[in-house]
């Protein structure tokens, strides 16, 4: 499954409000779900963060979980102009966040495959110093598409 096809421009917020880690995660979740569903997702995501930060280092975090609140794989992206503390692995602040929520029943385990793909793409973004490059959501999605293609070619 092509990652760029899972992203829509209304799910890419390049001016996400900086704040505390929990609040930023919550803001991103509430941008795609409301009410009890959003509360359930936030609660599970924060439990996941208790296991260890999903801040994978060099400015990127990938909070993720499965939840009954979604019917299909949902991805949202947020970028803050000011980096925030995410207790990341390398202790460095984070400014690009990929949020992934998957349904519990997931034929072919697309969730873990997609999560793995996002980790790879995130590593390319940091390697090429592209975190702040895209100026618009369309540019961001095009960038992801390009990275994904280059990774596929490499295999």
């Amino acid at each position: 499954m092509n990652l760029a096809s899972l992203l829509s421009k209304d799910r890419v917020n390049l001016s996400l409000k900086p704040g505390k880690k929990d609040d930023v995660i919550s803001d991103l979740v509430y941008s795609i779900r409301k009410g009890n569903d959003a509360a359930l997702i936030v609660s599970t995501l924060l439990k996941r963060e208790e296991l260890g930060s999903t801040g994978i280092g060099k400015g990127i975090a990938i909070p993720h979980c499965r939840s009954l609140a979604v019917e299909k794989l949902e991805i949202a992206v947020g970028r803050t102009n000011k980096p925030i503390n995410f207790n990341a692995i390398d202790k460095k602040p984070v400014s690009l966040i990929f949020l992934i929520i998957a349904p519990p029943q997931d034929p072919g385990n697309q969730y873990l495959i997609t999560l793995g793909k996002i980790v790879q793409i995130a590593k390319e973004i940091t390697k090429k110093n592209l975190i702040q490059k895209a100026k618009t959501p369309d540019e961001f999605i095009a960038m992801i598409n390009e990275i994904e293609k280059s990774l596929t070619k490499r295999k």
Binding site: L40, T44, L51, R66
Partner: peptide, 8 residues
């Protein structure tokens, strides 16, 4: 929540 935690 229990279900989501078990999946996690």
């Amino acid at each position: 929540l229990l279900f989501d935690l078990d999946n996690l």
